[in-house]
Amino acid sequence: MKSRLRIACSRSHLQQVRDFVRNYLSSLNLPDITVNQVVLAVDEVVANFIIHANGEDETQFLDLELTFDKHDLNVEIADHGDTIFLPEPHQSPDLRAYIRQGRKGGMGMALVNRLMDRVEFLPAATIRCAT
């Protein structure tokens, strides 16, 4: 079963993304914890694409595709902007150092990598997550 959504690159569309993912997953009768984890992970990646890759340029857009086949959920997010967003390779952040420094941000992709079984960024500005 597939479902698709296209949004303009604006933070104002993040609630629409969360609702889209939650509605799709709820129709699969998955546990609430799984639904919440996937919603959080997708929200974080989409926000990164909107903010960091596209500078909230509403003339740019993202395509989301959710596919559930047997026991596999695949999430594909395609960015059609001019900038390629490839985050640094995953490293577990030093939480104590973050607290000492009073840092905010920079934890999102570490969280996504913990929540999803596999996360791949492809040069064509597409991310695939599976759980």
Rank of each mutant, 00 (worst) to 15 (best):
D72L: 09
N54A: 01
S10F: 01
I33Q: 03
D94T: 01
V42C: 05
Y98G: 04
D32Y: 05
K70A: 14
K2I: 15
D32N: 14
K2E: 15
V38Y: 00
R22G: 02
P93M: 06
D32C: 13
T131H: 04
E65H: 05
D72A: 05
G108F: 00
R118Y: 08
D43C: 07
K104M: 09
Q15T: 11
P87R: 03
A8M: 04
P89Q: 03
L111A: 06
A124N: 15
D94C: 03
Q91T: 15
P31F: 01
D57A: 06
M116G: 08
R114K: 12
E88G: 08
L25C: 07
H90D: 12
K70Q: 13
L115W: 04
Q60N: 06
D57P: 03
A97I: 07
C129Y: 01
S3W: 04
V45K: 03
S10T: 10
E58Q: 12
A110H: 03
V46R: 00
E56G: 10
L40C: 07
V17D: 01
E88M: 14
N113G: 07
T34S: 11
S27Q: 13
I127V: 15
R18K: 15
I7D: 00
L28A: 14
P89G: 02
K70R: 10
L25T: 07
E44Y: 05
C129D: 06
F49R: 07
I84Q: 09
A97H: 08
T67N: 08
F20V: 11
G106R: 11
L64T: 02
H90F: 10
G106K: 09
L40F: 02
R96N: 09
M109H: 07
N54H: 01
R11Q: 13
L30D: 08
A110K: 00
D82C: 13
Q60G: 03
H80W: 02
F85R: 06
N54E: 01
Q37A: 15
T59G: 01
R103G: 05
N48M: 03
Q15V: 13
S27R: 15
F121M: 08
D69L: 15
T131R: 09
A53G: 08
N48Q: 05
V112C: 02
H52N: 12
I50M: 02
D43A: 10
Q91M: 15
E58L: 09
L115T: 06
E56T: 04
H90E: 11
T34H: 04
T131S: 07
D19H: 10
A53C: 05
G106Q: 13
Q37C: 13
L122P: 02
L95K: 09
Q101C: 11
M107D: 02
I127C: 15
N54F: 00
L73G: 11
A125K: 10
H71S: 13
P31A: 13
L86G: 10
V46P: 02
M1K: 12
P87E: 03
A124D: 15
G108A: 06
A110V: 02
C9A: 10
M116H: 04
V75K: 00
D69H: 13
V42W: 00
D32P: 10
A78M: 14
A125Q: 14
H71I: 13
A8C: 07
R6T: 06
P31W: 00
K70F: 04
A110F: 03
P31Q: 08
N113Q: 12
E56M: 14
G55E: 12
D69F: 11
G105K: 00
G55V: 05
R96V: 11
Q37H: 14
A78W: 04
A41S: 07
L64M: 11
L66D: 05
D72W: 00
F49I: 05
R103T: 13
